[in-house]
Computed example of a mutant assay.
Amino acid sequence: MSWDAELAAVTSRIADRLFKRPEPKATFGDLVRGLLADVPRKNSWQLADHVGHPTANPIEWLLSRAKWDADVLRDDVRAYVVEHLGSADGVLIADDTQAIKKGDKSVGVARQYCGLTGQVENCQVMPMLIYASAAGHAFINRRLYLPEDWAGDAQRRKVAGVPEQVVFATKPQQVIDMLEEERRAGTPFGYLAADCGYGRDPGLRAYCHTYRIAYVMAVPVDLPLVGVRGGGEPAGHVLDRLLAHAGPGLWERRSCGGGTKGARSYDWAAVAVSLAVQLPADGHTHTLLIRRSVSDPGDVEFFLAHAPAGAPVTELIAVAGLRWKIEENNETGKDLLGLTEYQVRKWDGWHRHVTTAMLALAFLTVSRAHLEGQSIPEPVPPAADQGKDLHHQESLS
């Protein structure tokens, strides 16, 4: 089947679930096709021009005023991704991205930290969840973060169409909510990966311990651990004592996956630890992974792994290395698929546009997997030296 025919089949099947009338079905297919096209800016006017609409009205109506449920589309995107990329050892990866906006009318927009620029900007913050396996990686869930001022402002909520049941939630709590949706949907995965903004959150870790979810998440240098004499000890002190005990022999060089410039190699150390206030799930253990840059030995990052007892450290390193896949998806979604180029301001419009862009990315990912002959996903390979495992330092807890 040709690329165009396959796209038409996918969008038609999904549109049949979303709409009853032929007009919105056709417009939905045109919207997805436009997002995938080489259009300089993916706003409604340029998309309409590309697909041959005389005005932007059909697309604007579809996104802002038509009656349909973006969560049904989200469920279909998830099912499509899992159908083609799913694997029992797939990895869920959480992170947030931002859309810089002008004014104060767009839902959720506020002056807040923006990872794009590393400073406070007028922006929307979007916690996202992707699914990654050996066959590829694509978005499967999303949230729009509402700052407390927004969540508690009845007038702004009414104007923006925020549903009554939506209340303030931290970004880690929004990831918990997405994980709960994935559990209920039966999404197959072996690990969760996330950066320090999520790994430092005790609520997210507690949820994973309760439901026996394995994870590898970056954590801060002051993460409280149990020291050798039973008192509290930050993660950074663990590294100091390991260096004093093992010296240069502490590190082993490993690849945590391929990048645009080849293998991404770092020096790694691993030690069994206990969290000061949280126990792992039954049959699971905590491991502190310490990653050091090869070119800059002062650049050190910590990861906390919660995994079944006996899980090889190379497997944990491989999961840690997958976290950057969501950065790829964010970049592709924004640069190629108009993920944040919407002109909608309200709650429904935001969810409809972003979820449609998620479908466009899923289609690209699945198409690439089929072209590369990976329609049947393979297990995530070890990070390096298959069959060998990184030396696991004696527990310091």
Rank of each mutant, 00 (worst) to 15 (best):
186 G>P: 13
297 P>N: 08
96 D>V: 11
175 V>M: 00
156 R>T: 00
58 P>F: 06
395 S>G: 15
296 D>M: 08
360 A>Y: 12
85 L>Q: 11
46 Q>L: 15
324 W>P: 09
237 H>K: 13
244 A>L: 13
397 S>I: 06
231 G>Q: 05
28 F>M: 12
370 H>V: 02
136 G>C: 06
395 S>T: 14
240 D>H: 02
147 P>S: 08
13 R>A: 15
362 A>P: 06
237 H>L: 11
60 E>G: 14
163 P>W: 13
358 M>T: 10
46 Q>S: 12
389 D>Y: 02
300 V>H: 02
206 A>E: 14
278 Q>Y: 04
282 D>P: 01
147 P>W: 11
16 D>S: 13
191 Y>H: 10
349 G>T: 08
63 L>Y: 05
206 A>T: 06
299 D>M: 04
125 V>I: 14
125 V>R: 05
44 S>T: 13
324 W>S: 07
32 V>C: 09
45 W>Q: 03
332 T>L: 11
156 R>E: 04
7 L>D: 07
233 E>G: 00
77 V>W: 12
170 T>A: 15
302 F>K: 01
172 P>S: 07
28 F>A: 03
384 A>T: 12
354 V>Y: 00
264 R>G: 07
310 G>C: 10
60 E>M: 12
314 T>F: 04
396 L>Y: 05
231 G>W: 05
374 Q>G: 01
225 L>K: 01
157 R>P: 01
232 G>C: 13
248 P>V: 03
151 A>R: 04
240 D>V: 06
162 V>Y: 15
340 T>Q: 05
281 A>V: 14
359 L>F: 04
269 A>W: 08
311 A>R: 10
277 V>L: 11
144 L>D: 02
136 G>A: 03
319 V>M: 08
247 G>V: 12
131 Y>M: 03
144 L>N: 05
56 A>K: 15
60 E>L: 01
201 D>M: 02
316 L>E: 06
329 N>Y: 01
158 K>P: 08
359 L>V: 08
49 D>I: 09
235 A>P: 02
230 G>F: 09
344 V>K: 05
320 A>N: 04
120 V>R: 10
106 S>K: 10
66 A>W: 06
197 G>W: 14
223 L>R: 11
254 R>S: 01
253 R>D: 15
112 Q>D: 00
112 Q>R: 03
355 T>G: 13
161 G>Q: 03
365 T>W: 03
39 V>G: 05
247 G>A: 12
40 P>I: 07
225 L>S: 01
337 L>F: 04
262 G>H: 12
134 A>N: 09
11 T>K: 04
195 D>C: 04
340 T>A: 02
348 D>A: 12
101 K>S: 07
92 L>N: 12
247 G>Q: 08
65 R>H: 12
245 H>V: 13
230 G>D: 01
91 V>M: 04
151 A>F: 07
93 I>Y: 11
3 W>K: 10
167 V>T: 15
79 A>W: 14
179 L>D: 11
71 D>P: 08
14 I>T: 06
52 G>C: 11
